[in-house]
């Protein structure tokens, strides 16, 4: 299953890289150009997935949306990582009231439904690529914080940390040298699974009319426009963007599951060898 995950994600990355090149080389039409085309044209050799309500090519829009989705999700998750991991490490290492306060705050954030929180943030921040990434990133900070904090609190009590401290190692040294290396191993799985989740949330935001500006092709936004035409039986505008999103999330989930079993498997092997 993990193999399928790797293949699917690789294909999406490839599509994300190639589509803008093909568009600028003139081999594919511009995703926003539509004035010359029929509106709501059924799939045909000229437009393999048909055209939408403005006559834009559904195939090209679906393909180019993959690049945008990957960009936003990557930006959001890296930001969440850069904020969440150090915060969790410091909180777990220091303990005391700072830790308790941060845990309460993060737990409260974590309780909130992901989509609700990002909807509020996207509503406040307005449309735009960095804005959408910011609205997504706040949702995932608590997740990294929780995992890293709990692990830091555990590692802190280990003998080798105690030994380092008694040899005169400062807190910064310990954080960087001992905590970071132990804690960072749990991040890749969480990152992949969160990426899957973030693709869905970004689509949800777009579907509600939030997130990215209208000029940027995005699966969720295109599906919102497809919804109005659905009762008349126009299926192609709805099918392809959603399918693209579904397969990407599926691929990322497979990858995450594979990583998890691989990491826990190699962890067991390492323990057995010791």
């Amino acid at each position: 299953m993990a193999r399928w995950g790797v293949i699917i994600v690789a294909v999406y990355v490839l599509v994300a890289l190639l589509t803008p090149l093909l568009v600028s080389a003139g081999l594919l039409p511009d995703p926003n150009a539509g004035l010359d085309n029929l509106i709501y044209a059924t799939p045909s050799p000229a437009h393999w997935c048909g055209t939408d309500r403005l006559g834009r090519d559904v195939c090209v829009r679906t393909l180019s949306a993959s690049g945008v989705a990957l960009q936003v999700v990557l930006l959001a998750l890296v930001t969440a990582l850069v904020i969440g991991v150090p915060l969790g490490m410091v909180s777990g290492y220091l303990g005391g009231w700072v830790d308790r306060l941060l845990v309460l705050l993060m737990d409260t954030l974590y309780t909130l439904p992901v989509l609700l929180l990002s909807v509020v943030l996207a509503f406040l921040l307005g449309r735009g690529l960095p804005n959408a990434a910011a609205a997504l990133c706040v949702v995932y900070i608590p997740q990294y914080f929780r995992v890293v904090r709990n692990q830091s609190a555990q590692v802190k009590a280990e003998l080798y940390v105690e030994a380092a401290r008694s040899l005169g190692a400062g807190p910064l040294w310990i954080l960087r040298r001992y905590l970071f290396r132990n804690v960072i191993t749990s991040v890749p799985v969480l990152l992949t699974l969160n990426a899957a989740d973030a693709v869905l949330v970004l689509g949800g935001l777009g579907f509600l009319g939030l997130g990215l500006p209208e000029t940027i092709p995005e699966w969720g936004g295109d599906l919102q426009q497809a919804l109005t035409a659905l009762p008349t039986g126009i299926w192609w505008t709805a099918l392809y963007p959603g399918l693209a999103m579904f397969v990407l999330v599926l691929g990322l989930s497979f990858l995450g599951e594979g990583l998890e079993s691989w990491l826990s498997g190699s962890g067991q092997a390492a323990r057995a060898a010791r």
Partner: peptide, 11 residues
């Protein structure tokens, strides 16, 4: 899990 809710609903 991977199904986008609104897309599933539309289908």
């Amino acid at each position: 899990y991977a199904l986008p809710p609104f897309w599933a609903a539309m289908v």
